[in-house]
């Protein structure tokens, strides 16, 4: 079997566990919805102002809910000490990394797909006017988040204060991603296609660069 098939198998294993327990999906989605409710009363409800604030709300929610999902997904491997089993398996380490990253990207994307309708419903913003570009930006954002998050979560698995350190490590590195994401969403709301195009390219390039480095770095990060 090829590297990608192994990766797909690991990703499917993670998603199947999740489909059975539904633990991460439910908690992440509920947390995301909760944040949307909080936003709708801590920010001014004036439509013009909310239009400027909504891109930030969307991507901050993805960051927070994503971090919860990330640490839980790797906690599961730690509790049963299955990370070692995965690393001992006669498959390339890259497959392990890709499988975990794909599973997390799917979870983050699912949360994003819940939070967007919530924001539309509660705050009455026209996010659904351009569903295609919005979906692509969410997909690219989820991939970038999952790639960087997986590298560091896997390395933090043995560290005691991992839950505190994870955001400290990944948020500064993810700032360009969230900046691009909010700019795309803001561009879509303002109907500025040039801005959307630029940031979409930026986001794609960022994902590609960090994916390549992560593929190279993952192997040396998880040596026991």
């Amino acid at each position: 079997m090829s590297t990608l098939q192994h990766a797909a198998r690991i990703a499917w294993k993670d998603l199947r566990i999740e489909l059975r327990s539904k633990e991460i999906i439910f908690t992440m989605m509920f947390f995301g919805g909760l944040l949307a409710v909080i936003y709708s009363y801590v920010f001014p409800t004036n439509l013009d102002m909310i239009k400027l604030a909504v891109p930030g709300m969307l991507w901050v929610t993805i960051a927070f809910a994503g971090t919860i999902g990330l640490s839980r997904a790797f906690d599961r491997e730690r509790e049963n000490d299955t990370m070692r089993a995965l690393l001992l398996a006669p498959i390339p380490r890259i497959s392990v990394f890709l499988g975990k990253a794909v599973a997390i990207a799917v979870l983050v994307l699912l949360v994003a797909l819940v939070i967007v309708p919530m924001l539309v419903l509660l705050l009455d913003v026209p996010l659904f006017d351009n569903p295609g570009p919005l979906l692509i930006s969410l997909l690219l954002g989820a991939i970038g988040f999952a790639v960087i998050g997986s590298v560091f979560s896997a390395a933090l698995i043995k560290v005691r204060s991992r839950d505190v350190l994870l955001p400290v490590i990944i948020y500064p590195l993810l700032v360009p991603l969230f900046m691009a994401g909010t700019s795309i969403t803001a561009g879509l709301l303002a109907g500025d296609s040039e801005k959307v195009g630029f940031w979409m390219g930026f986001l794609g390039l960022y994902d590609a660069a960090f994916l390549v480095v992560s593929l190279w770095i993952f192997e040396s990060m998880v040596i026991e």
Binding site: L156, V159, S161, V164, L165, P176, M221
Partner: peptide, 23 residues
């Protein structure tokens, strides 16, 4: 604060920080 595996994690951070500068 990350203990023994902190060296590798920090090294990865330095590499990512360097690539992140142009972005």
């Amino acid at each position: 604060f990350a203990g023994a595996s902190g060296e590798r994690i920090a090294a990865a951070m330095a590499v990512f920080a360097m690539i992140g500068v142009p972005f």
